[in-house]
Design a protein around this nucleic acid. Sequence first.
DNA 1: CGTTCGTCAAGAGCAGTGCTCTCGGTTTTG
DNA 2: CAAAACCGAGAGCACTGCTCTTGACGAACG
Lengths: 230, 230
Amino acid sequence: MVAPSLRARVRAGMIDEIKAVARRHLATDGANLSLRAVARDMGMVSSAIYRYFPSRDDLLTALILDAYEALGDAVEAADAGTDRTDLRGRWHAACRAARAWALAHPAEYALLYGSPVPGYAAPDDTVAPAQRPPVTLVGILRDGVAAGRLDPSGEELPEPLRSDVAELAALLAVEVPPALLARGMSGWTQLFGLISFELFGRINRTLPHRDEYFDHQTGLMADLIGLPAA
Amino acid sequence: MVAPSLRARVRAGMIDEIKAVARRHLATDGANLSLRAVARDMGMVSSAIYRYFPSRDDLLTALILDAYEALGDAVEAADAGTDRTDLRGRWHAACRAARAWALAHPAEYALLYGSPVPGYAAPDDTVAPAQRPPVTLVGILRDGVAAGRLDPSGEELPEPLRSDVAELAALLAVEVPPALLARGMSGWTQLFGLISFELFGRINRTLPHRDEYFDHQTGLMADLIGLPAA
DNA sequence: CGTTCGTCAAGAGCAGTGCTCTCGGTTTTG
DNA sequence: CAAAACCGAGAGCACTGCTCTTGACGAACG
């Protein structure tokens, strides 16, 4: 590993600074990010930005990738920081971490899980980081099955569906019976809905104790999955 | 009711035509709707549109209102078209209707439930139509309680939460015990997540039999709620 | 019936956008 | 040391939402 040239170092610094300024603009102006505005903030001319990002969409893609990684880090860290045998505690910790990150970075969350930008198509690089939160969640189920604390043997999915979900399990690289994975996906789906409603919607305006509501809702899904308490 | 003048009639026709053309553009170009483009399609000049809508946001608001009503109509009709005593059938019918409408009008669904447009704030006129789908869903629970087929008397919510949810029940004008309403909201939240994942996401790319997956997922929530089959 | 008032489409124009290209100047590389 | 790569600035194109003014048309009133 040869030391990077000075030019490469300032280039990396510029890229970081552009992304930081763009993130700041994202927080205030939403998804319609203006290249000219971030260039202005940096005392540059808009065309100079194109030396670092070939287009506005590429800048957005970089921000999206960073956001996916940040969210994945937060969720995985919360899960890893909980007693491995406390399945229900791990579920709650992971869900809370996702919500906390979303509340702290609403614009970036909207970038990840909001309506897709019309002309924009997410490149394939994003699919792996995007799967980290749900993989973490179903990882809790896998550990539960492996430890014998989660036994869905009494349930079997009807056939067109069973093989689909089994394929999904293979894709996510988790060994979980299809019927249980389907319940886990339901929990992940509801978690995404919960956070989105709280961030975008206005029905939660009538629920002052949001933390308690969130914990209760995710607890309901833990019940559905059958996660035992510690 | 006096007959509207000719001028008022052609004006109403123009408004309808503008909305129709805008909806068409919405379907292809997404949320960044161009006033000039719809004006071009109508053989008009962009400034002429402002005779009918004071701004682009007002056009979007009109489209959003129409979309909320259309979705509400679809869900309510599906529920009303099912045997009133078949609670589980009504739940599935309402969920399927919401999904079918969303799949048929993805751009409008994104307008309603996607990330909010940055500078745009939904006016208060939208909150009542927006509540129609969840109200329809919890209406099924209310009927179940009234008919004695749904009995959540064994469950009680802890206190900061119980009064919040009770207030929500009053706001939605449905007489449902808080603990049951919380389960119903969980189902509504998961339904929204299901549809959004299918429309926006790419994880369902790996689930070819989407209808079966959807029915199974909504069935899981019907289980959580305790909806009995017919 | 004729006049006045409200409404309408059109056009010019402003400020802003993403993006391309060219032009000098600097840095790295062979 | 020269060649090649890189960089920032500037001009310019096509596009956007929106405002203002102008001239024409239809409807209501005297």
